[in-house]
Amino acid sequence: MAGLLVAIGDSFTEGVGDPHLHYPNGVRGWGDRLARQLGRADPAWRYANLAIRSKFLDQVVADQLEPALAMEPTHVSFYAGGNDLLSLRADVDGLMGRYEAALRRLTGSGAQVVVFTAFDPRTSRLLEPLRRRVLAFNDGVRDLAATHGAVLVDHAALREFEHPMLWAPDRIHMSRHGHKRMAAVVAERIGVPHTLRLRDLVPHERRPWRQVAADEATFVRAEVLPLVRRRLRGEYDGDRITPKWPQPVHPADGMKRLAASRATGPVPGRDLQGAGSGSEQGS
């Protein structure tokens, strides 16, 4: 049965790591990929995505929660807190208390709410302090999902995501293949058929220790240190962008076509409440 999916959160839901020039903000992501599958399953499905990269939990709640609920969605995806965990001083207990208040508000609306654990970063010993926070966050999300009747996508339990092909170079955001796989997982969790073709994950060979050490040094210089510097300066990419899909659209019209129409006006022959068809290749 068709409905309205509203996605709220941060870069995980906006789609960072899955670049695409023809999509708003230059990224596609699992949310847009899932939306296309919803439109194929039933052209009456509608979709909005309010997520913005680098936002903290309190910012997601303040800026996105009420606008999302005002749309009267049948389904809401909610992921926030990852950027809080990256802070130098993260109060996980306090974070989970605020997370629960937001989750209670969402589930109280009657919408089916989908929540996510965070994938724990086992790729570098440098990230071990972050991993401890992630484990505590994930335990909290699991408990709260069970308590409040939310649909849980336990990303941390999907160990196929240990494959490096599913991650962007920063090791924090999923790659195109990772977002595509996540779209398939969420579709299955909410009972929507999909036609996503997932690439086989060929076992990756173990690298010599010298190569591992060299790669770690490169990773620290290229990704970790710039992130720390930006955080210390209070610079956040999300301060300069707007939501990708702030109003509901019909994915059946074709996501790239809808993106192009934002600059020129409404899609011909359609309004937000109507139903229609369209085709788009390459999901």
Rank of each mutant, 00 (worst) to 15 (best):
R142P: 06
D143W: 14
L144E: 07
A145D: 15
T147D: 02
T147H: 05
H148M: 07
A150E: 08
A150W: 03
A150S: 05
V151K: 01
L152Y: 06
L152H: 01
L152W: 03
V153E: 02
V153D: 03
H155S: 09
A156W: 06
A156E: 10
A157D: 02
A157L: 01
A157T: 01
R159I: 09
E160R: 13
E160I: 07
E160V: 10
F161M: 11
P164K: 03
L166K: 12
L166F: 15
W167V: 07
A168N: 10
P169V: 00
P169M: 07
P169Q: 06
D170K: 07
R171I: 08
R171M: 13
I172H: 12
I172M: 14
I172E: 05
H173I: 01
H173V: 00
S175H: 04
R176S: 13
H177Q: 15
H177R: 14
G178Y: 11
G178P: 15
R181Y: 08
M182V: 14
A183R: 06
V185P: 02
V186W: 07
A187D: 01
A187E: 00
A187K: 01
E188I: 03
R189W: 04
R189F: 07
G191V: 06
V192Q: 04
V192M: 06
P193E: 00
H194A: 00
R199V: 09
P203G: 03
P208K: 03
P208N: 01
P208G: 05
W209L: 15
W209H: 08
Q211H: 09
V212Y: 06
A213P: 09
A213Q: 13
A214L: 09
A214N: 03
A214G: 05
D215K: 09
E216W: 12
E216T: 12
A217L: 09
T218H: 09
T218Q: 12
F219Q: 02
F219H: 09
F219A: 06
V220Q: 02
E223L: 07
E223P: 07
L225N: 03
P226W: 02
L227V: 11
L227C: 11
V228R: 14
R231K: 12
L232Q: 07
R233H: 13
E235H: 15
Y236T: 05
Y236A: 08
Y236S: 08
D237W: 14
D239E: 13
D239A: 13
D239L: 10
I241M: 08
T242D: 11
T242N: 15
P243T: 00
K244V: 05
W245A: 05
W245N: 04
W245D: 02
W245Q: 01
